[in-house]
Amino acid sequence: MRHVAPTRDALDRRVLASPPLSHWSPFARYIEDEAWPRVDALNTLWPTASGFRFATQDPGLLADGLHYEERIASLGVIATRPDNWHDLFNAFVWLRYGGLKRALNARQMAEIEVMGPRQRSRPQCALTHFDEAGLIVALRDPAMLDAWDAHDWHGLFWTHREAWLSGEARVEVFGHALLEHALTPGKLLVGKALVTMGEGDAAARCAEAIAAGVVLRDPQELRPLPVSGVPGWHPESGNEAFYTSAPCFQPLRPGRVYPPPLGLR
């Protein structure tokens, strides 16, 4: 069933006080204001000489006949639907994670050159899954990765609870569709993760790996993570039974194996 986000008028603005939306506080006023932000206002947030801009998606823009990704690659123009949560969060992600977005766009364009604009390859599916529901996870303890490999959610989130609370284990929501889902209070969120091990800039490392084509070659590379299990991210995360009863905590499918994490320098 397709997710339907609350209307702007019906939005419970208390969701902005909890992760993941609380991590996007610099953009909070564009979510909580009564009026939708205009594209021109979003364009004022770009770093100087970024080379990109948001443009209202309307018949005039689409008359160029370009594929969405091609318009970004050739013109630096990101088609943005007005009064639309999904595209508003996409704009926020471009503004915060420009390097990751550029890497995804370059990889999409390389696949389009091979497949054409109407067919999709396995890498394109992986790139899109990460774009929509992506998480960047940074771990330091191999035991946490072992628990994740086995879908031992109690072990990952409850046994290692202190690692999440202290910041030793970190997760950043990159996928704009996942941020849109977070507008619904109490919703169980499951994302598709790239994971790094060690200390350093996890987002930059992921962008480097995507650009080099060493990750996101197949959707099965992405690790599902019920991110509502991160302590403090869901109202029930302080209850140990949550990790064995909530439907988002699914067992490992037979034969499913995940790739190793990306190392941080």
Rank of each mutant, 00 (worst) to 15 (best):
R2P: 15
A5T: 05
T7Q: 00
A10Q: 12
L11S: 11
A17E: 12
L21E: 01
H23N: 13
S25N: 00
N43P: 03
N43I: 03
T44V: 07
L45C: 06
W46T: 05
F54A: 01
L61T: 03
L62N: 03
L66F: 08
E70K: 09
R71L: 09
G76W: 05
W85P: 05
H86N: 08
L88G: 01
A91M: 06
L95T: 05
L95G: 05
R96I: 01
G99W: 05
A103S: 07
L104C: 13
L104Q: 04
N105P: 07
N105I: 06
R107I: 08
R107V: 06
E113F: 11
M115H: 02
G116D: 07
G116Q: 02
R118W: 10
Q119F: 11
P123F: 08
L127T: 03
D131A: 14
E132S: 09
E132T: 12
V137L: 12
R140W: 11
R140H: 13
D146F: 06
A147Y: 02
W148C: 10
H151M: 11
W153S: 13
R161D: 09
G167A: 09
G167T: 14
T184W: 09
P185D: 12
K187I: 06
G191K: 00
T196I: 13
T196H: 10
G198W: 00
A204V: 04
E208Y: 00
A209P: 10
A209S: 07
I210Q: 02
G213S: 08
V215Q: 02
E221K: 09
L222F: 14
L222V: 14
P226S: 06
H234C: 02
P235I: 14
S237I: 09
F242R: 01
F242T: 02
T244L: 07
P251I: 01
P261F: 04
P261S: 10
G263T: 06
